[in-house]
């Protein structure tokens, strides 16, 4: 690596320094826009005791779900975890700690974490189990709860295209949590479908500036579809 060039040559190098019991933020919504090869590398590496922050936890054999059979995830912070039998088994058996977090609060926790804001007030979750143990405050006649921000030791992100400096462009709804996770990792690792030279991306069209990105790698992606719904042509 030289200067602002963030490109690394292997997935092993991309996740160097990831150790047991760290916190990992992951982009993706369902299976859409997930850093599938970085997740596969965590599985291969065998890192354990992870706290994973992600909207969902994949399915049994794809996405973050593949980290479950070897008990690599100790705790998950997510908004919806429905589609996964092994997940359900570990959760019901008390082997996996699950912190359910409203989706907008989860996004804002990452955004705030990346922006140096330690906590924020939100009306979401007031008067519900989510509010338990949290500070409450009334602003202009409305009740809010204080939600702490989240930062990760690592953030794993999937983008569509990047230049070598780590400027990122996402594609369609594969964007979702990815730009937020990218800001909130102490080490942010991004995998993309295409890498171009600096200057080739229009600065006006960059979604995530390279300042947030530490390591960049080009991969090939399965992009599995969770619910294939079609209409007749």
């Amino acid at each position: 690596m030289a200067g602002f060039d963030k490109v690394v040559s292997s997935y092993q190098e991309a996740l160097a320094g990831l150790e047991d019991n760290m916190t990992v933020l992951a982009g993706g919504f369902g299976l859409c826009g997930i850093p599938e090869n970085l997740i596969a590398e965590i599985k291969r590496k065998g890192t354990k005791g992870l706290t994973v922050v992600s909207n969902n936890c994949g399915v049994d054999d794809f996405g973050l779900g593949i980290l479950l059979p070897n008990r690599q995830i100790k705790k998950i912070i997510a908004s919806y975890v429905g589609e996964n039998a092994e997940f359900e088994r570990q959760m019901m058996a008390g082997e996996l700690e699950v912190e359910l977090t409203p989706q907008g609060t989860l996004a804002e926790k990452m955004r705030a974490g990346g922006a140096g804001i330690p906590a924020f007030y939100t009306a979401t979750g007031y008067g519900t189990p989510v509010a338990e143990g949290k500070e409450e405050r009334n602003f202009n006649g409305r009740n809010y709860i204080l939600e702490p921000a989240i930062v990760g030791d690592f953030a794993i992100v999937k983008a569509w295209k990047a230049d070598r400096y780590g400027n990122l462009v996402f594609r369609k709804t594969a964007r979702n949590f990815n730009p937020l996770a990218a800001t909130a990792g102490k080490i942010t690792v991004v995998e993309v479908e295409h890498i171009v030279e600096p200057g080739e991306l229009d600065p006006d069209q960059i979604h995530t500036p390279g300042i947030y990105v530490n390591r960049l790698i080009q991969g090939t992606f399965e992009k599995r579809i969770e619910q294939r719904t079609i209409r007749q042509a």
């Binding site: 919504f29 964007r175 979702n176 579809i225 719904t229 079609i230």
Partner: peptide, 29 residues
């Protein structure tokens, strides 16, 4: 349609969808 399916374009129910005219895309925050 079968031909239009795009793994990068889903709705909140994780179903494949399309974009209407005048659509916009943004992050979760």
């Amino acid at each position: 349609t079968e031909a239009e399916i795009d793994a990068d374009l889903i709705n909140a129910g994780k179903q494949t969808v399309t974009m209407a005219k005048g659509a916009s895309i943004f992050d979760s925050a």
